[in-house]
Computed example of a mutant assay.
Amino acid sequence: MNPDLDLTLQRVIRAPRSRVWDAWTDPALLASWWTPAPTISVVDRLDVRPGGAFVTRMSEDGVDFVPHTDGVFLVVEPGERLVFTNALTSSWHPATPQPVAMSAEIIVGEHADGTDYRVVVRHGDAAARAHHEELGFFEGWGAVTDALAALAEGDAR
């Protein structure tokens, strides 16, 4: 972790890590929490394997959907770790995603109270990191982590 380039989020989710993993790898479950409410997500492709596509769209009104995520998985360690990037499109072409290019590492580990959930979002330079933080990284990723936790813990299931 490089504090000049990376943003992190960590929390304990009071659910087995298998439920947290499923929320990341099952398209129907991912769609239910991947964007902050009241925005709606649609998962177009979720090929959870190294090199597999990660493509989602989002909508404010449930009618008009716009691109949200178009990336690839780089690392998949089942039940433990996912790494994806939006710096490559799902068709493996270089991308200049808006608002910022990033690689995200999702780590789910054992915790006495459930799952130790950690996110590390890496940026190419300090300016991109600062821009992502200014855009509301902690609020946005925090809100979707709350929704993920509610789902995994059974409140939203």
Rank of each mutant, 00 (worst) to 15 (best):
A147Q: 15
N86D: 14
P50R: 10
L46M: 12
T56G: 10
M58Y: 08
T115I: 12
T96H: 03
V119Y: 02
I107K: 11
P67I: 01
P78M: 06
G71V: 11
S103M: 10
H93L: 05
T145E: 12
G109L: 03
V100C: 08
A95Q: 07
I107G: 04
T56A: 08
T35K: 01
T25R: 06
L88G: 01
A147G: 12
G51T: 04
V43T: 15
V144R: 13
E153P: 06
A23P: 03
L88R: 08
V55P: 07
T89W: 06
R57S: 15
F137K: 00
A149G: 06
W34I: 15
E153A: 06
A15L: 09
N86I: 09
G114K: 09
F137N: 00
F65L: 14
T56P: 05
S90C: 08
R57D: 15
M102H: 11
A112C: 07
H123A: 07
R157E: 15
A127I: 11
T25K: 13
V66I: 14
Y117K: 09
G71E: 08
D61R: 07
P27V: 13
Y117C: 01
H131W: 07
E110M: 13
L88N: 01
A53F: 06
F138P: 00
V75E: 14
L5W: 02
P16Y: 10
S91D: 15
P3H: 00
S41I: 02
L5H: 02
G114I: 01
A104T: 14
L29K: 12
E60P: 06
S90V: 11
V119E: 07
D125E: 04
E80Q: 06
G114E: 11
R157M: 13
Q10W: 03
A112V: 05
G136N: 03
L7C: 01
T39L: 15
V12L: 05
L82T: 08
I40V: 15
E77C: 09
G142Q: 08
E60N: 12
E133G: 00
E80N: 04
A23L: 00
P38C: 05
R129P: 01
L82M: 01
S91P: 05
H132E: 06
W92V: 00
A37D: 15
S59Q: 11
F137E: 01
